[in-house]
Structures are given as C-alpha cells and as structure tokens.
Design a protein around this nucleic acid. Sequence first.
DNA 1: CGCCAGGCCTGCACGC
DNA 2: TGCGTGCAGGCCTGGC
Length: 271
Amino acid sequence: MPELPEVETTRRGLLPHMEGIRIVRAVVRHRQMRQPVPPVLPDCLVGLTIRTVLRRAKYLLIDCTTGTLIIHLGMSGRLWLVNGGTAPEKHDHFDLHLANDKIIRLRDPRRFGLVLWVTDNPFLHPLLNRLGPEPLSDDFNAPYLFRQTRSRSSAIKIVIMDSHLVVGVGNIYASEALFHAGISPRKSARRLSLARCAELVQSISQVLQQAIQAGGSSIRDYVNSDGMAGNFQSQFFVYGRAGEPCKKCQTPIKHLVQGQRATYYCPICQR
DNA sequence: CGCCAGGCCTGCACGC
DNA sequence: TGCGTGCAGGCCTGGC
C-alpha cells in the first residue's frame, strides 16, 4: 500500500479523531509482524491520552502522554477509523479503542508492518535515527542530493529509494519523479549534474505533494482513514503503464527490473 | 502452479 | 583494517 503520500493522508485523516482523545482499550490479535509486537502492548496504552499524530518517513508516531506508539504499514497495511462494535476481520491485527467510541484499526495481510512502543524520544529509535531528510523539507535540496550522489555509481532510481539518503520515495513515486525530471532510471547517480539534481529534487517534491492532494494512490487496496480510495493513480505518467503510450510523446512506456523492483519509464522523454 | 505486489532490514562480498 | 557501497535474500499473504 503505502508510500509517503498514503501515510501522510492517513495521518491527516486520523488526526482530528485522535488528538486529545483518551485510549480506553487496545487489542493485539497477532504479534508476528516485521518485528514482534512488544509484550508491554497493549496494556501500557490503556488510559493514556493521545497528544498528536506525527509522521517521520513512512512511520506514524502516535504521541501519547507516557510514550510513543510507532506504526509502520509495510506493503499491505492500512490504518483506518471504524465505529465501535465493528467486528474485526481476518487480518485486523491491532485496535485502539478511543474514548470517543471510535476504533483505530490496523489491517495488514502480509505483516511487513510494525507496531512499536517507545518511552524515550522516538526519533532516537534505531529504526529512525539514521534516516535521511524528509523529501518535502528544505534539508532535501539540490546541493545535498549532488553531494550525496558523488560516490554512488548505482542507478539513480535505486539511490533515491535509499531511506538513508532521502526518506519516503517508494517504488511508484521514484518512477514518476524520474519521468517528470526527464532522467533515465538507469542513469548512474554520480553522473547527474547539479542542475539535474535540482530538477529531480523539484520533481520528487512536486509529485509527492500532488499525490497527497489527491488523497494518495490506490492500486490494489489502499484506503484512507475513512475507508476511501485515493485518486492519484489516474495521474500516473509511467507507473504500471508498460506498453501504453507516453502521455507526452506517445512512445510506448518501457518496463525493467532494478533492485528486484519494477521500474517504468519513457525511453524518449528520459535520458 | 508460478509469478507478482505500494517496504525495508540484514548480512555478505567487494573495493578503496 | 575499516568503511561505504552494491546486491541478494527474507519476512508474509493474496490475486491473477
């Protein structure tokens, strides 16, 4: 499911239903995730008040009075709001019951997701403390990308998906951003000029912001916090469009595999 | 049946 | 030697 726009859409949708609300009950139905759900959960959550919900990379940080619940949605996770009393289904592994009679429910068939509880600064957690800058922040800029790519001989598509360089650029938006920047996904990262780094930074930022505005992309099962699908998939220029005409030049879109992931690009518009 | 899927960590091999 | 980099594998289920 989720890349940064989908996680951010989820966060924004959930926030008004969670901010300042007390947790009255929490349920763990399946502990085997990317890491085991820690034994202190769910009991440590009962009675806590949610201060706010933050996002770092694709991690959701539910900031509570005595600690932070960290949730990652992996490949197939979704977190959404259901009314109290709604029965859980097969892959509904985790519930937060709130004092407003809402349930925040995590469903994740593949269980590549994550539920953690930390009582100190969540940004210092080993999974978070070595992450690169947020792609929508000023810290992700052309000089930074230029500097960081000088020693990287691998393909630029692989490099922008490295969360230690920049977070939140997943497989869909990597292809889309490279298309809009006119850069071949196969181009060696170290061979990008500063000017092209600037174009790429701009494209990444723009495509992510547009996807957030459209409520994320739904290509299999993503839904937002209200259970509604996103719309951005209709604005894809290359992702999933192998063989279809390029929306700019009509040349058939090509498909290749990089780092065991599918890449889509236009062989004419991207060099 | 085999293959594919929106993520991301780990461990190994390699070269400077 | 030690570090960064590059790459394969693994975690799971479901749909085609």
